[in-house]
Nucleic acid binder design. Structure first.
Lengths: 204, 204, 204, 204
DNA sequence: GATGAATGAGCGTTCATTCAT
DNA sequence: GATGAATGAACGCTCATTCAT
């Protein structure tokens, strides 16, 4: 059908813009990026962008939001593909690290602005980000709780432990992005899991 | 002497402006804050701000920079005031948490990490921030290395472990700032240390 | 072609702005003219001016520079259209006077000489102005030297004589602009030539 | 008397300020000079300048005006000290050149802004400058008329001839200021007089 | 009287958004 | 639909002038 084709094309163009926007927003702060710049990079006229996105702000929040949804969905799918609790945790770390490694541009924005506080009008994005973050923690929490129930994990407050795990991952990611060493980020997986599972104290 | 008094007054006003700026910058992003707003909030005329700070950018970077120096210095002083390695680590966590608790506005800006990607002229701030961050990690690293030598800690890459510890603290801080529960942040100290030292796995 | 039409229109608008700017700059000093004023007078929005000219300074220097080029080119073309030395000199005076008469606004700025000492960024305009001036004198010098060689003119330092001639013209122009008498400026031509050629002393 | 001493001191300070102002205004345009700069250079506090001059504008116009009065008065005194018409003219040229040579800073301002067109509020200065200029021309005119009556000079419109003479002087001065050659400006006296009296045409 | 910190109107410039083509 | 020139509100910053000390 004609309309379908239209829509398919529309979505392709839209995605192309989002992709360029991602690159550009990753290099400078929101306010240092101009709409003209994005239009130019994505090969559209300025006015045309406004057919895809209501405003610069919408473009930005959409880009962040959609990509983030993808990330969370992808990670959860990975995690859900294994059954064992410890394996799930390992997959979680792995999936996180891989996403970061494959989406450095995007992560530079997002990790930079941990839950962010942009324009007063962007409150809804901020809220979504926080919600998504807490949803994700809740997802991790669920796994941890199973682990605790199974006697695999110590009986600690699962929410806080989930948060700790996510931040351990972030720790490795920050290092990797701030001080590129050539080594794959994924290589940090075992280290993260080791610390997370065993802590740093020597037990005789 | 007259000049002394002058200088004292100058510094008081300067500090007052920085304090207001901190509040304001914590609520919105750099670009959404106007100089007029800061001037107004701190009870000065627009032009007067420019006697204390060369530009909006200088005001911002100074605020971040000075406060951060204070934070790092304070934390290290606390840590240095005890001798035992494990006590040092405990103090580190405690001092971090207390600073965050007492400087929520500031930390909202700083943890937000927006500092990463502002104007190209702010590169020097970004560099300082990263330097300071790595210096701090190096400081923690030193403590950890002693602990490893003493046989108190497992023999893990100290830099990465230091980074992990800092992010564990950040994990608790994010939770606390994002979901205020009324509970003091400091209450998370033992939990952080527990995870950090022992990990989450149950060892029989 | 479409692009051609675009460019033609662009140049028309650009010229219209320059024309208005000329009028406005002729009435007050550079710093007393606002961009808003020029925009308003030429029927554009403030921002639109910036599509034609990088900055207020560029607008100003462009206006001066282009018009001056036109003036010098026009005068030389006139002069070159006759062969005889004395006729060339007469044409030079005539062309100068006519340009001034037809471009009073512009000359008010230019003769005012304010261009000398504006912003340090305008050094290049000042240098161009001085260069152009000396080039023009050199052009006149060339004619005078021929006249001297031909035995038509006294053997005097040609550069200084050229400068004298230009200032004699300027003398008449100043009078005419400062004390408008209704008489055409061109009417002064013979007087200027008489003084220039014969001096004021009575020779018996 | 006390009051006299006061006034003497006041005038000295005032003169000192005017002198510094002259230097500073000669280097940049009116708007690029700040009151603080003049205050600083003359060793007074900003506020103190306002006891001597109502405003920046008054300071500027006063400086121009007083110095110009001095110039005209000095030149006329010189000219009046000789009786013969031709000698008077020679003295006029000489005195002009000497003033310019001894007051290059000032002349850079004044010659730059031939009759000027500064702020709309400076109309009165502009008017005074024009008046003074025409008065001076009138003075020269008087001499020339005597010369004509005496049969020494050709019977030309005296006003225009006066203006021509002044511009001939200006011609030499411009050259000298724009292209410093090390030679004294005064050296141009004979050349100016030669052109003025005899013109450039060779008469057999 | 002397001071210079404080003032704030007013500047040049940018850029998200619109709309005539 | 697609375009990009036109718009103008809003910004950071300057500096002549004032006035409390």
């Amino acid at each position: 059908m004609r309309a379908e084709r239209k829509e398919r094309e529309f979505n392709l163009r839209r995605a192309a813009i989002l992709q360029e926007a991602e690159k550009i927003f990753s290099a400078k702060s929101y306010h240092d990026v101009t709409v003209a710049e994005i239009a130019n990079a994505s090969g559209f006229a300025i006015g045309s962008l406004y057919q895809f996105f209501e405003s610069k702000e919408h473009l930005y929040t959409t880009m962040i939001s959609e990509k983030l949804d993808l990330m969370y969905a992808g990670i959860r799918a990975e995690v859900n593909s294994v059954k064992d609790v410890l394996a799930k945790i390992a997959r979680l770390v792995e999936a996180h690290l891989m996403f970061i490694e494959n989406n450095t541009d995007f992560c530079r924005i997002f990790l930079r602005g941990e839950n962010d506080a942009l324009s007063e009008m962007m409150t809804s994005l901020r809220e979504k980000l926080i919600d998504d973050y807490f949803n994700h923690i809740a997802f991790v929490e669920g796994i941890l709780k199973t682990g605790i129930k199974n006697g695999l994990l110590r009986s600690l407050p699962a929410h806080a432990v989930g948060s700790a795990l996510i931040h351990l991952i972030r720790s490795a990611a920050s290092e990797w992005m701030l001080r590129p060493s050539g080594e794959a980020l994924l290589a940090k997986k075992d280290f993260i899991l080791d610390i997370f599972f065993n802590g740093v104290k020597k037990h005789d």
